[in-house]
């Protein structure tokens, strides 16, 4: 939250998939949020909540059904020339969940990482290409010698480091991390998270961090958006969200996280989410309930939540 400069604006983004005859799956159904320069924006939710689809639509892996994604004020989804697209792709990169299936098994690590360099013509000759890749490998905590190996020779954590090096190769400003640590062991998760934080500090990166592990998201994010059934239901600074959750769904999600603390676990009570508590008299909207804290609610609920907050 350094300068509060908007880097990415997502405005009423929708992504619908058709599922056979007259059936439409509304994976993302009107999501709006901003990501500021230099921050980490966390997106959490259950599987099927549309958090990955949101990430993939932002980077144009999917075409949006409607809505806008603006990067530095420029629409991402509009018609673009090849040259423009290339420029845009260089600024925005992605790290994927499964480090074993997101790396081409037939390519050496050198070629995997250098692919972006080749596409964007960032290196002049073979020597420079190799040097760049070796530097990237060192940056993510691997060795130079790893460049000639193939993905299967690495462990899960190392593969994820290769994925990170690949994303960094073209000097991006913005990286979408789609569950980058879900497939890793606890001790390795911490290593990768520390690496992501270190790189952010050194290079001033902005992250969109998608995950379902809430304690890790809380740790890495400045602000967090909670998604449920294709909609953003709550958005706030991460401390605020954890201490004053307002939407019933957020409350239930938070109460479901098991913490590594037996005494806490013995006394923890889980709140179940009951969608029928919602006021259905009108279509809920996304409203700012207190500065920087947004909740999806109707007018009636808005008043109710506000009182709840004041009484806290």
């Amino acid at each position: 939250m350094n300068t509060e400069q908007k880097l990415l604006e997502v405005i009423d983004l929708k992504k619908h998939f058709s599922a056979g005859r007259n059936k439409v799956i509304k994976a993302v159904d009107g999501v709006s949020f901003d990501v500021y320069k230099g921050e980490t924006f966390g997106l959490v939710g259950e599987s099927g909540s549309g958090k990955s689809t949101t990430g993939r639509t932002i980077i144009r892996l999917y075409d949006a059904t409607s809505g806008e994604v603006k990067y530095n004020g420029e629409d991402v989804h509009g018609k673009k020339s090849k040259a423009d697209l290339l420029k845009f792709n260089r600024k925005m990169q992605m790290i994927f969940q499964d480090p074993s299936s997101s790396l081409n098994p037939r390519m050496t690590v050198l070629d995997i990482i250098a692919e972006g360099l080749d596409v964007h013509h960032l290196v002049k000759n073979e020597k420079e290409r190799k040097e760049r890749v070796e530097q990237l490998l060192l940056d993510v905590g691997l060795n130079k010698e790893h460049a000639t190996r193939f993905p299967h020779e690495f462990s899960g954590g190392q593969r994820q480091r290769i994925g990170i090096a690949r994303a960094l190769a073209v000097d991006p400003e913005f990286i979408i991390c789609d569950e980058p640590i879900s497939a890793l062991d606890v001790s390795i998760q911490a290593q990768v998270v520390n690496l992501l934080k270190k790189l952010q500090k050194e290079r001033g990166l902005t992250y969109l961090f998608i995950a379902h592990d809430l304690s890790m998201v809380k740790y890495i994010s400045d602000r967090i958006g909670v998604m449920h059934l294709g909609n953003l239901v709550e958005l706030a600074d991460s401390d605020e969200l954890y201490h004053n959750p307002i939407h019933p769904y957020t409350k239930s999600l938070l109460s479901a996280i098991p913490l590594p603390d037996p005494d806490y676990e013995r006394s923890r009570t889980r709140i179940t989410y009951d969608p029928s508590v919602h006021d259905t008299s009108e279509e809920p909207e996304f409203r700012e309930i207190k500065p920087r804290h947004w909740v999806r609610c109707t007018t009636k609920e808005f008043e109710k939540y506000k009182k709840e907050l004041e009484n806290k």
């Binding site: 606890v186 001790s187 911490a190 290593q191 304690s215 740790y219 913490l259 590594p260 603390d261």
Partner: peptide, 30 residues
């Protein structure tokens, strides 16, 4: 959880962020 003795257990416990942990670096097992 409250009286771990083995350094590996320390590492496992330390590498998980708690909900109150601030900006500090996570303890990792190298």
């Amino acid at each position: 959880f409250y009286n771990p003795k083995h350094p590996y257990t320390w590492g496992l416990l330390g590498s998980m962020p708690t909900l109150d942990s601030e900006d500090e670096e996570l303890y990792t097992i190298p």
